[in-house]
Simulated scan of single mutants.
Amino acid sequence: MTRRLLPLLLPALLLVLGTTAQAQAAGYRYWSFWDRTGTHWTYATQGPATTRPDDGAVQGFRFAVSEDSANAEQPRLQAPDFAKICAGSPAVAGKKRVALVIDFGTDADAPAARTACATVAPDATTAAALATVAEPLRYNTAALLCAIAGYPEQGCADQVTAEKKTPAPHHGPSVGILAGATAVALLAAAAIWRSRRRPHD
């Protein structure tokens, strides 16, 4: 009897203990780049160094931790108005105006989000527009935008690991894991006890 139950109980114990491997998720901490399309933000298909926005365009940047572009955090300003953002920057002949939304991340650990209106040459890229209103910018050797207005001071698209938070801090295995392991152990003990009381097959 015991020999028959052990192959079933051991996988159950491994399954309980194996749940700890799912407590982490990898992501990247970086500036994502967005186009304002109609009434919503769209993840930009090109980088700011190659995008050449039209006069009157609204574009955004958001600093956050994201696993990939599919779940990247959008700028929190959900209704940016070009006319309002560029109200203090009158049109100039031979130039274009681009409204920029710069969201530095959560209020707890970053400067507040801000908007700016860049007046640049008609063929200027978004990167050039950004440089006129949010210096200093910092790039890495691969021309990846690492910092806007000096934020963050260090790092560039660094990989981070986000751990799932528990209701209360504790040391050692979680209560759920201990309870599951205990239940499996009790089942094994009961099987052994029963096998000793009954004749063996």
Results as ranks from 00 to 15, higher is better:
residue 22 Q to L: 14
residue 112 A to P: 09
residue 63 F to W: 12
residue 171 H to K: 05
residue 135 E to L: 13
residue 45 T to F: 04
residue 78 Q to E: 08
residue 199 P to Q: 15
residue 38 G to Y: 01
residue 27 G to T: 09
residue 128 A to S: 11
residue 23 A to C: 15
residue 190 A to G: 15
residue 103 D to T: 04
residue 157 A to H: 13
residue 151 Y to E: 11
residue 100 L to F: 08
residue 110 A to D: 09
residue 38 G to P: 01
residue 106 T to L: 09
residue 87 A to F: 03
residue 86 C to G: 08
residue 133 V to H: 05
residue 132 T to D: 00
residue 10 L to V: 11
residue 25 A to G: 09
residue 39 T to C: 02
residue 154 Q to A: 13
residue 106 T to G: 13
residue 104 F to H: 13
residue 138 R to D: 08
residue 196 R to G: 02
residue 99 A to C: 05
residue 193 W to C: 07
residue 170 H to D: 07
residue 105 G to E: 07
residue 184 V to L: 03
residue 141 T to H: 12
residue 168 A to V: 11
residue 199 P to I: 13
residue 61 F to W: 10
residue 144 L to H: 12
residue 121 A to V: 03
residue 152 P to N: 08
residue 195 S to T: 08
residue 11 P to H: 11
residue 45 T to E: 14
residue 101 V to D: 06
residue 164 K to G: 06
residue 23 A to G: 10
residue 14 L to W: 06
residue 17 L to R: 09
residue 75 P to G: 11
residue 39 T to V: 10
residue 150 G to I: 03
residue 82 F to R: 04
residue 137 L to P: 07
residue 13 L to E: 04
residue 21 A to H: 14
residue 189 A to L: 09
residue 79 A to N: 13
residue 114 R to Q: 07
residue 186 L to C: 15
residue 95 K to H: 11
residue 144 L to S: 12
residue 61 F to E: 02
residue 175 V to Q: 05
residue 24 Q to N: 13
residue 64 A to F: 01
residue 152 P to T: 05
residue 139 Y to D: 02
residue 47 G to H: 07
residue 61 F to M: 06
residue 74 Q to V: 13
residue 119 T to D: 00
residue 201 D to C: 10
residue 174 S to G: 10
residue 121 A to T: 09
residue 138 R to I: 01
residue 186 L to P: 00
residue 18 G to M: 00
residue 21 A to Q: 13
residue 149 A to F: 06
residue 173 P to E: 07
residue 42 T to A: 15
residue 115 T to C: 03
residue 55 D to M: 09
residue 177 I to A: 10
residue 21 A to I: 04
residue 51 T to S: 14
residue 40 H to R: 11
residue 68 D to R: 13
residue 85 I to R: 01
residue 83 A to S: 14
residue 141 T to C: 00
residue 34 W to T: 04
residue 170 H to A: 14
residue 35 D to H: 14
residue 105 G to S: 04
residue 184 V to Q: 05
residue 17 L to K: 00
residue 135 E to G: 14
residue 155 G to K: 04
residue 96 K to L: 02
residue 87 A to W: 06
residue 106 T to I: 12
residue 95 K to Q: 06
residue 103 D to I: 02
residue 95 K to G: 01
residue 148 I to H: 11
residue 46 Q to P: 09
residue 194 R to E: 08
residue 65 V to D: 12
residue 166 T to W: 12
residue 12 A to N: 00
residue 85 I to T: 08
residue 48 P to C: 04
residue 170 H to T: 12
residue 129 A to G: 10
residue 115 T to K: 00
residue 139 Y to C: 02
residue 92 V to N: 07
residue 122 P to M: 06
residue 63 F to H: 01
residue 161 T to D: 09
residue 111 P to N: 09
residue 6 L to E: 12
residue 150 G to R: 01
residue 17 L to E: 06
residue 159 Q to K: 15
residue 155 G to A: 04
residue 183 A to I: 11
residue 27 G to P: 01
residue 94 G to S: 13
residue 56 G to P: 02
residue 116 A to Q: 07
residue 73 E to N: 11
residue 55 D to C: 04
residue 106 T to D: 15
residue 10 L to D: 04
residue 63 F to C: 00
residue 25 A to H: 12
residue 181 A to N: 06
residue 172 G to Q: 11
